[in-house]
């Protein structure tokens, strides 16, 4: 906010003074220029004929995909079961690693600020940066296609997510409770079990169901790279352009994701 005096000696009020205003305009200008430039590159790489033709093609695909082939559902139960297993077991496995990593990454519980916290943070950011589909791609190349690769992929991606949220929760605990338990002559592990774990339990449960919910969504597509679940059916249906099957699979995925989101929201609201 700025008040200045103009030539006639009147007070003039503006939201910002001139320098700040100029800086702001400069930031706006550069941002817009960058976006426009990027857009031009995309536009060059695009065959606009296809894009203008898109409504017709979309209508065409839509027409072929409707109605979904309902009888195909009987072949989807097993992949659906696999999808849920990949998500659930993957979440459980990731927690086994994420919990110790979180304790190593939290400032107030790490055994060593550099030698433990550093690697833990690096592990977290690496795990988070790589999408579970890429992990799946990698694991399929290494250990072969199947549910196992999918589960490990989900687990690897979830470690970073869970450990990050968990270590933030650990850093936010009430230190007085820790102090009180320490003052009784408790050992390091007892302090952990009595003063820290009870405090982070609600966030731990919340993080778990939250990630489980995301993992259901992610595991529906892992099959596209051969890592099991509904995506596998989707991929084979796409290969033969069986659009009615594709539409049914998308519908099933939609329902599964909505249900898992409802479960997760319910559990989280019950905890808080």
């Amino acid at each position: 906010m700025a008040v200045s005096t103009n030539l006639e000696g009147q007070k003039v009020w503006m939201v910002r003074d001139r320098d700040a205003q100029l800086k702001r305009w400069l930031i706006y200008f550069v941002s817009v220029a960058v976006v426009v430039y990027c857009w031009m590159i995309i536009s060059d790489a695009t065959t606009w004929f296809f894009v203008f033709d898109a409504p017709r093609i979309a209508a065409d695909i839509g027409g072929r995909a409707m109605p979904p082939k309902w009888s195909y559902i009987n072949e989807l139960w097993e992949p659906l079961w696999d999808t849920i297993n990949i998500a659930t077991i993957g979440t459980v496995l990731s927690l086994i690693i994420a919990v110790p990593v979180a304790f190593m990454a939290a400032r107030n519980t790490t055994p060593h600020q550099v030698f433990c916290r550093g690697p833990a943070l690096l592990l977290i950011v690496s795990s988070r940066s790589i999408n579970s589909l890429i992990w799946a791609l990698l694991l399929v190349a290494i250990i072969g296609p199947g549910i196992f690769a999918g589960t490990i992929a989900i687990a690897l991606r979830s470690i970073g997510f869970c450990a990050k949220l968990l270590y933030e929760a650990i850093e936010e605990i009430d230190e007085k409770q820790v102090e009180a338990i320490t003052a009784t002559g408790a050992s390091r592990w007892q302090v952990m079990a009595y003063a820290i774990v009870p405090q982070i339990m609600p966030s731990f449960a919340g993080i778990t169901v939250f990630r489980w919910d995301i993992n259901i969504r992610e595991s529906t597509v892992l099959g596209l790279v051969g890592a099991g679940g509904l995506g596998l059916q989707m991929s084979s249906s796409l290969n033969v352009l069986a659009w009615p099957q594709v539409s049914l699979i998308i519908f099933v995925i939609f329902i599964a994701v909505i249900i898992s989101e409802m479960v997760s929201a319910k559990v989280r609201s019950a905890i808080i």
Binding site: K176, I181, T184, G185, S187, Q190, Y194, Q199
Partner: peptide, 26 residues
Amino acid sequence: ALVERLTVMENVLSGRLGYVGFWRSF
């Protein structure tokens, strides 16, 4: 400075932590 999510009894017994082993207390 009670551990708020533990019961009253657990809080009182936590005073004995220096005397009992980890697994017993856990």
